[in-house]
Simulated scan of single mutants.
Amino acid sequence: MRTRELGIVIGEHPTGPHNAITDVPGVRVGHTTLEQAGPPAVRTGVTVVVPHDDIWTEPIFAGAHRLNGSGELTGLEWIRESGELTSAIALTNTHSVGVVRDALVDAQVGARGDGLYWSLPVVGETYDGVLNDINGHHVRAEHVHAALAGASGGPVAEGNVGGGTGMICHGFKGGIGTASRIADTAAGRYTVGALVQANHGRRERFRVNGVPVGELVGPDVVPLPGMPVTYEPGSGSIIVIVATDAPLLPHQCTRLAQRSALAVSRVGGSGEQYSGDLMLAFSTGNRGIPPYSWDEDAGTGRPEIAVRMVAPQLMTLLFDLTIEATEEAIVNAVAAATTVTGRDGRTAHALDHTLFRQAMAPRH
């Protein structure tokens, strides 16, 4: 069940039809989930976000933000330099970034053919080694290709799926979560969607609409996973992907990525020392940017490219949509997750829905 199915509403703005990042037209999401009781216990996978069908040959504007850097999101230097996203985005576990990145290179070659161009795909990670045999390198290239082939619009599976299979959020079972918001303006309707891989936070800081759910449903009620004594509470990381069809320039995308970090804070994340809290925002509202090529004549026919941008006065509205969508995506990741027992018998318990409703009852 999702947060709204439990009668809990976050924010003031309406959602898109699926309350998911796929409400942004053209955006698709795919998962490959790997589960094996073991030994070794395998609780991992890969999730892909495809910004639009031609992303391999038609970049779009994007921007990124770092709340805390104990993590990895590949390809960001080129995004910061050029303001352009040139690949699908994949999310997986910390030790599978390389194989997933290489698989995305293969996917681009498959789409564009062989040639003199480079590929700097975007792959984000969070650490699932508490529940998963992370050093077994169970994610392989075929799993990435399967997620890409199965990527679709519409409803998005959440919780223990794809890259979120082995993740823990605020001491509860976490994983993948998504949400969206819409707003009508004089220029038309804008949609903002967020997708998170949530593997961060401390139980006592978990809050929903300001209610201290993590205190009300403490470890004496829902046990914490049996973490090794060397594992600092709050370690783990979150990746936030924000998508919008509002026509944004790269610096405006960066500002949305920054605001999504406020949602992490509102739910209780504080960018702990060993939490890699990384955010990426992209806009599909400007299309027609040519792909990269060594062909010196590639740009001679179009020396200029017309682009649009949202007026600065509307950015506050987009900030609000981003914060609400990201906040609900994190809570959805927790609400949708189910209890998992993994590596060395450690168990990450789901947040019981009855207890969640009871904790929220004074406000709802």
Rank of each mutant, 00 (worst) to 15 (best):
R2D: 07
G7L: 05
G7Q: 09
I10C: 08
H13R: 15
V27F: 04
V29G: 10
T33E: 02
A37M: 09
P40E: 01
R43Q: 10
G45K: 03
V46T: 10
V48A: 01
D54C: 03
T57P: 08
T57A: 15
P59V: 07
P59L: 07
A64Q: 10
L67R: 02
L67M: 15
L67N: 05
N68K: 07
G71P: 02
E72Q: 14
L76I: 15
E77K: 14
R80W: 13
R80C: 11
S82H: 10
L91S: 02
N93Y: 03
S96W: 05
V100F: 06
D102K: 02
A103D: 06
D106G: 14
D106F: 11
V109W: 12
R112V: 08
G115H: 13
L116E: 13
Y117K: 13
Y117S: 09
L120N: 15
V123K: 03
V130A: 10
R140A: 13
A141S: 14
H143P: 07
A146H: 08
A147C: 07
L148Y: 06
A149C: 01
A151M: 11
S152N: 11
G153R: 10
V156P: 06
V156E: 00
A157D: 15
G163A: 12
G163K: 00
T165D: 10
G166Q: 03
G166L: 01
H170N: 09
H170E: 07
F172Y: 15
G175Q: 06
G177A: 09
T185R: 11
T185I: 09
R189A: 12
V192G: 05
A194H: 03
A194Y: 04
L195H: 01
Q197A: 14
E204H: 11
R205E: 14
R205C: 03
V208H: 09
G214T: 08
G214I: 06
L216R: 11
L216F: 09
V221I: 15
V222H: 04
P223I: 03
V229Y: 05
T230I: 11
E232L: 13
G234R: 06
S237Y: 02
V240I: 10
V242N: 06
T244M: 08
P247F: 03
L249V: 14
T254K: 12
Q258G: 08
A261R: 00
S270E: 14
G271K: 06
Q273K: 12
Y274E: 07
L278Y: 05
L278F: 06
A281E: 10
T284D: 10
N286A: 06
G288N: 03
G288R: 04
I289G: 02
P291N: 09
D295S: 12
T300D: 10
R302S: 14
E304Y: 13
A306W: 08
M309A: 15
M315N: 05
L317D: 00
D320Y: 02
I323G: 01
T326M: 05
A329I: 00
N332I: 06
V334I: 15
A336T: 07
T338E: 15
T341S: 05
R343P: 00
G345L: 05
T347G: 13
H353V: 02
F356P: 00
